[in-house]
Nucleic acid binder design. Structure first.
Length: 412
RNA sequence: GUGGGCGUAGCUCAGCUGGUAGAGCUCCGGGUUGUGGUCCCGGCGGUCGGGGGUUCGAAUCCCCUCGCUCACCCCA
């Protein structure tokens, strides 16, 4: 049997209905804040991610689905949304629009990871990006919007972790300090952390290894080294969140695996999830546009995992569409008339379903009951139809061409 | 890539120490010679994940393999 590829899944009708609801909630919240929808291609030039996400990241090093497009160019199924949106911003000259340009998307992404609860190889994210503003208000607003989307999705009991990375220049000095500290305690670090001391020392804060964690407890943090405008920016973001009544925890160990982040950094964690507890997160990325050969442009944004939100919520599916009339056939002679009646009913604005499985009349009535049909019109060979009210059980003979009017009269 | 758990009908599962595959739900038909929701009867549906081995005999024991899943790692 051919199965869906490992780490992928089918979205069956019931699940699709839950997703449609989630999409509606997000569209309303983001739309009200002036964010407009954008969709970018499912695949992009590999170079976009190599440069945008960072050559040193796990995503680029081992998680991309890349392929040759047949003309010698390397393409990659998008592993994240920020770099493509920035590419579109640059390509369409959006720096000439009023800034910031506020965009949101709901798209699927692809990463070749080992699947587990809340982590898939094709997954969906809702994301929002505000490009062209360095203001701390932009970060705070984005965080508040993400909190609202999560709230509307039914993911209420989340914890917000907040940090700041400063600017890359400010980080250089700190990185050296951290490297010196790690080397001094090298013997107690896990092998993975030790191997990354030079490549990515900040990731040591992420380690789950016990001895490493103990070492990191007394490690110098970037948060305490923030100075000047970086410190002011962060203080302002915090003040705005405080004023908005949003609770958060300062988390100096918060480190994201994407290279493009600067300053503000955050994640929302849900205790209802397993090991993959992050439902959404993001931050500021003031250098990315420039790195992709656009004009120097500050920006900020986040992404939230659709599957993770759905795992952490009780959000019910939208109720199924009501069926005004089910057109049943009493004998084969009536099938043509039944077909026409169902179509006429739909043109008249009713929802109508037709018997399509060759069921017995008893079976047709049972089916009509299951799908919640309000009326059943039983069409036979003569020019009349039996119109049955399924809730009362009352049934009367009606001229076939008066069936629709009779239903509309009862349910205007 | 590494480790734990699990793979029996479309779904949820039973099948004890090996004896020749079962239930409930779903679906279809009938009871009502043209009529739903309850009830009754019947039917459709299974290479017991796959391969090999032990045995007179394997869903059951052994080995290998594949898949799913949770975790490490990483992240949404």
């Amino acid at each position: 049997m051919i199965q869906a590829p490992r780490g992928t899944f089918d979205i069956l009708p019931e699940d699709a209905a839950r997703r449609a609801r989630l999409e509606g909630e997000a569209a309303a919240i983001l739309g009200a804040a002036g964010y407009r929808r954008i969709e970018t291609p499912t695949f992009e030039a590999t170079e976009l991610f190599a440069r945008g996400v960072g050559e040193a990241t796990d995503i680029v090093r081992k998680e991309m689905y890349s392929f040759d497009d047949g003309a010698g160019r390397s393409m990659t199924l998008r592993p994240e949304g920020t770099a493509p949106v920035c590419r579109a911003y640059i390509e369409h000259g959006m720096h000439k629009l009023p800034q910031p340009v506020k965009l949101w998307y709901l798209s699927s992404f692809f990463r070749a990871e080992a699947p587990q609860r809340g982590r898939y190889r094709q997954f969906w994210q809702i994301g929002a990006e505000a490009i062209g503003s360095a203001a701390p208000e932009t970060d705070a607003e984005l965080i508040v919007l993400l909190a609202e989307v999560l709230q509307a999705a039914g993911v209420g009991d989340v914890e917000l972790h907040l940090s700041s990375l400063g600017t890359p220049e400010a980080r250089v000095e700190y990185r050296e300090e951290l490297k010196r500290y790690l080397r001094a305690h090298e013997d107690r670090l896990s092998p993975e952390v030790r191997d990354r001391i030079d490549a990515n020392p900040l990731r040591a804060f992420d380690a789950k290894d016990r001895a490493t964690r103990e070492v990191m407890q007394s490690a110098p943090t970037l948060l305490e080294r923030l100075e000047g405008e970086d410190a002011e920016h962060f203080a302002r973001v915090r003040a705005l969140l405080d004023a908005a009544g949003l609770r958060y925890e300062l988390d100096p160990s918060l480190v994201r695996g994407l290279d493009y982040y600067t300053r503000t950094l955050y994640s929302f964690e849900s205790p209802r999830l397993g090991a993959q507890s992050e439902v959404g997160g993001g931050g500021r990325y003031d250098r990315l546009i420039e790195q992709l050969e656009g004009p120097p442009t500050p920006a900020s944004g986040w992404a939230a995992g659709v599957e993770r939100m759905l795992l952490a919520t009780e959000l019910a599916a939208a109720p199924p569409e009501p069926v005004d009339v089910f057109v049943a056939v009493a004998d084969a002679a009536g099938t043509g008339a039944a077909f026409a009646l169902a179509q006429d009913a739909r043109r008249a604005g009713l929802s109508a379903q037709l018997e399509l499985a060759g069921r017995s009349l008893k079976g047709q009535l049972r089916h009509a009951d299951r799908i919640g049909a309000r009326y059943v019109a039983i069409v036979g060979e003569d020019s009349h139809a039996s119109l049955r009210d399924m809730s009362s059980g009352e049934q009367r003979e009606v001229p076939r061409d008066a069936v629709i009017a009779a239903i509309k009269e009862a349910h205007p």
